[in-house]
Design a binder for these strands. Sequence first.
DNA 1: TCCCGCGTGAAAAGATTTTTCCAAAACGAG
DNA 2: CTCGTTTTGGAAAAATCTTTTCACGCGGGA
Lengths: 303, 303
Amino acid sequence: MLPVFYSPEGDPALTKSSLTVREKIRDHYATLTQSERKFANSLLENYPAAGLASITIVASNADVSTPTVARMVQKLGFKGYPQFHQALLKELEAKVSGPTQRRANWASEAPEGHMLNRFSQAVTNNLSQTFSNVDSGQFDAAVRQLADTDGRLYVVGGRITRALADYAFTHFQAIRQRVTHMTSSSATWPHYVLDMEAGDTLLMFDVRRYETNLQRLAELAAERGVKVVLITDQWASPITAVAEHAFSCWVEIPSAWDSNISTMMLLEAMIAATQEESWDETKERYDRLDALFDTTRLFRKFS
Amino acid sequence: MLPVFYSPEGDPALTKSSLTVREKIRDHYATLTQSERKFANSLLENYPAAGLASITIVASNADVSTPTVARMVQKLGFKGYPQFHQALLKELEAKVSGPTQRRANWASEAPEGHMLNRFSQAVTNNLSQTFSNVDSGQFDAAVRQLADTDGRLYVVGGRITRALADYAFTHFQAIRQRVTHMTSSSATWPHYVLDMEAGDTLLMFDVRRYETNLQRLAELAAERGVKVVLITDQWASPITAVAEHAFSCWVEIPSAWDSNISTMMLLEAMIAATQEESWDETKERYDRLDALFDTTRLFRKFS
DNA sequence: TCCCGCGTGAAAAGATTTTTCCAAAACGAG
DNA sequence: CTCGTTTTGGAAAAATCTTTTCACGCGGGA
């Protein structure tokens, strides 16, 4: 016989729905206020440990007041904090005594063969492959090249990677000056090449199917003394031959096309590193950019 | 280096005495009185659940009085019942978060504090957070909506997420018919809204700083009966309120801006799922697209 | 039979936790 | 910029939990 602390009939919070606290938070997230979200995030980030202490401790850990927590758990549908606390405890307990100690996989509650799970597996694998194949020396060298504002930085991508090039452009533009986004319409590329000089940098994305035009462009640029930084896939674009720094990203997923998550990750890592490399210049640009956004009121204030 | 899950030095609760409560009970069993043993047995029979409630409840479940329990936990070496309670909790927690919590340090040979390593850590965490917060039912519903070719599919993003919207457009265009990419120039949006009909789908990206224009757009579209599928960050764009399906992505990384890797991952998972959902239509489109590429010779043959 | 000491739990006292109330601060609309 | 609304946290009140006190009952020994 199990000792039942809260018989289902006795506890409305558990009868009404068997949702986990996590799910309840998700469902009510839209109606939560700022500080309530602060607590919610703190809990989700360290779930469920961050909700197991007394309301006082839990609140101070999330840096909000006790009333905020109390109000929120009521919004979530609990009668009070103790009920909420018990619910978390129950979940934890269930997890321990649960049938199969669930695969150490992230995956949500989704069923075994669900796309979400298959996908998460593939992506994890890709990221890990990609990471372990990056040479940190090469990476640092490429970053120095990207941070070098003596020359211009050109960014270009192919049919699919155009989006990545766009993303790269948006960020590099915020970080440093003298950045040019070469649109994907290859007809205009010769004009850009005309202005390229030795010492400039060309950041290229080329994944299969590799594009002939991009290769031409890379060759022309390299001839003019432009340093080419290439982000490609695991099978390596032919541009690798003329590139100063080339990086391979693993891209296989269960689908007819290739994933660009590892590609994007490498790109973001480079942006982050570049920003760090030239933080003095960058910080000042960020501040000015922020001021401009404030003026134009394009964005909502975010605390 | 071996992954050390339980370093005695690391956990204060376990340093003082690395005995579990279970072991403590065994050690002191000889000195326990009759009623104390009654409680001890009750706890061991359902360990550690039977010790997680308040002393009152726990005592009454074991059919002994509160002072008995209080005296016993002191015999066991705890300062009071709360300490005993916490000890049990810690054990339970450790059991759950045990081996899986290993830090995913994929990273290459790069030194500990290298950006690549810091980055990989943050990204792993983001992906795992994002995954465990996706409701697979919501996901499936959103995918069905995205695969529905009775209505048009509109795609739009903000300043940063424009690139993601672009990426989404490129892929959805390959998968299904009737897809429109709303450019990021919000001046043209009213024209699109004019043509929107009930049953159409609007795939939106909105991460902080949330854009007022996007919110307007979402409201207008929702009013016309358009189903909004929203991909946002963990702090949730205000558009969540009018969206049919909303998904939160964890985006924090060691830098001044937010990462969009988890965002991209969710997007790719959706694309993959959509493709699977409507594979009959999709396959035929892919074949025709391939044939077109062959004809135009834009791409190199891939072996 | 009576007395003593130990174990036990009811109940009071004490400590802590949770909730409520309210004024100040933040926010957003006009 | 101002006003009205919502949100927030300090502090008191209420509820709950934990500990202590103490009297009762039981069993063993003189």
